[in-house]
Simulated assay, not measured.
Amino acid sequence: MLLIHEEYQSSFDVAMKCAVECEHCAEACMGNPNMLKCARTCLDCAEICRTISTYMVRGSRFIPNLTKAYAEICTACAEECSSHDMDHCQKCAQACREAVEEYNKITAVAA
């Protein structure tokens, strides 16, 4: 029998990967005044991915209610980062797209 939080293990892994890539991207972009929007978007996305990860560890009943909004934030981050040629931005955009896919699966199951 799986514990409640174990059903979210793969989603947790994707969320944490997204949080890490967003933090790396934000750090790399912060020194460039032209990249402040990217850095701020990445920081917002990293924060929500860490937050949903915490909910997943607890097996919170609120996860499906949050994933739709979180997918929107990750989508915005993916769009922002994919508009830049830097490798760190492209890695971040990919991690965000993976998170969106994962969050959409959770939202669809709950519907």
Rank of each mutant, 00 (worst) to 15 (best):
L3A: 07
H5A: 01
E6P: 13
E7V: 11
Y8D: 07
Y8C: 03
S10D: 12
V14P: 09
A15V: 05
A15I: 07
M16I: 12
A19Y: 01
A19W: 06
A19G: 08
H24C: 00
H24Y: 14
C25Y: 13
A26C: 02
A26K: 00
A26N: 05
E27D: 00
A28S: 09
A28D: 06
M30D: 06
P33S: 11
N34T: 02
C38N: 09
A39E: 13
R40Q: 15
R40C: 12
C42F: 13
C42K: 11
L43K: 15
C45H: 12
C45E: 07
A46V: 03
I48Q: 14
R50H: 08
R50A: 08
I52S: 01
T54C: 11
T54Y: 01
Y55F: 04
M56S: 07
M56Y: 10
V57S: 01
R61K: 08
I63R: 02
I63A: 05
I63L: 08
P64E: 07
L66D: 06
L66P: 00
T67G: 04
K68D: 08
A71Q: 09
E72T: 08
I73G: 14
I73E: 14
C74L: 03
C74R: 07
C81V: 00
C81A: 15
C81Q: 12
S82D: 15
S82T: 06
S83W: 09
D85N: 13
M86K: 12
D87W: 14
C89E: 10
C89T: 04
Q90W: 13
Q90L: 03
A93V: 12
Q94E: 14
A95P: 14
C96M: 03
E98V: 12
A99P: 03
A99M: 07
V100S: 10
V100L: 12
N104C: 07
T107P: 03
T107V: 08
A108N: 10
A111G: 04
